[in-house]
């Protein structure tokens, strides 16, 4: 069984390389191999990790739901934002328990950080970044961006000429999440650790202080939640069955109206 899968994977990789996703005519039928195993594994591990990080993070935030700028900030200082108490259906654990929220958060922080590192190394080696996510100057020309916005509003997500390729808004959002948002979460998370601040004193310099890091951590997760909502909404609008299959098996069917 394992061998069969491995063979199939090998075969599909070869086919993928031979066909190149931007020439559907050469692809086997209407299915293209879109996501490699390492991409799919990271995607689902990361989905699990980020949901746990958000739930446990909100549980931690409940201990002191005020945010400050600068090095310090506590009850007698002026917060820039006072947040509500997050309800139990959003937090891990459901009932307020700071110690257990921290156990979840700080274990999965390791999964998030080392998972991202492994994915980045693999995606440089297997050329996923260069092939699928590289953004050229022409891609971000205002006219091109505007055309893609209009295409999105019309629920057209694939370039008929290159249906397997990511569109520019997709590339920009993936690049932002992989290279900016998740690294920002890791950096600001580390800056909140008194031990790491001693090990790497530059952490509180680049973040502007521990309380600024805490604020940026919250702003960062807000943007990640925004990404999640849009990401899931677009999967549903595009074709959830096809998109889910491609992220589970790797195989994606070229939409009929775009062949």
């Amino acid at each position: 069984m394992g061998k069969t899968l491995a063979l199939r994977y090998e075969a599909s990789v070869t086919e993928f390389r031979d066909a190149e996703i931007d020439s559907p005519a050469e692809a086997d039928g209407r299915l293209v191999f879109r996501h490699r195993l390492i991409t799919r594994l990271w995607h689902w591990l990361n989905a699990l990790t980020i949901i746990i990080m958000i739930g446990s993070g909100l549980g931690i935030l409940n201990a002191h739901p005020s945010l400050y700028w600068g090095q310090y900030g506590a009850n007698f200082d002026r917060p820039w934002l006072d947040l509500p108490f997050w309800p139990s259906w959003l937090t891990i654990p459901a009932n307020y328990n700071l110690a257990i929220s921290r156990r979840w958060h700080l274990f999965f922080a390791l999964v998030l950080g080392f998972g991202l590192l492994a994915f980045m190394v693999a995606s440089v080696v297997n050329r996923h970044f260069r092939r699928d996510l590289a953004i050229g100057a022409a891609d971000v020309a205002p006219r091109n961006l505007w055309a893609d916005v209009k295409a999105h509003l019309a629920l057209r997500f694939h370039d008929p000429a290159r249906p397997g390729a990511y569109n520019i808004l997709q590339k920009l959002s993936y690049v932002a999440v992989i290279f900016v948002l998740i690294p920002l979460m890791i950096l600001t998370g580390l800056a909140m650790s008194p031990g790491m601040d001693a090990a790497w004193p530059w952490l509180t310099v680049v973040t502007g202080g521990r309380q600024s890091a805490r604020s940026l951590h919250f702003i960062g997760v807000t943007l990640i939640v925004l990404f999640l909502v849009v990401h899931v909404a677009l999967v549903i609008l595009a074709d959830p069955i096809n998109e889910m299959r491609s992220m589970i098996t790797g195989w994606w069917r070229i939409p009929e109206d775009e062949q």
Binding site: Q71, R103, W104, L106, F107, A109, L110, S193, P194, G195, M196, D197, A198, A199, W200, P201, T204
Partner: peptide, 26 residues
């Protein structure tokens, strides 16, 4: 497994900080 995160974090931090790294003084 979940609670072992503490030991991993301690091991990593101690490796990175060394014995005498100082907390920032203001």
């Amino acid at each position: 497994i979940l609670f072992s995160g503490e030991d991993i974090q301690r091991g990593l931090q101690r490796t990175l900080m060394g014995r005498d790294a100082l907390a920032r003084e203001f």
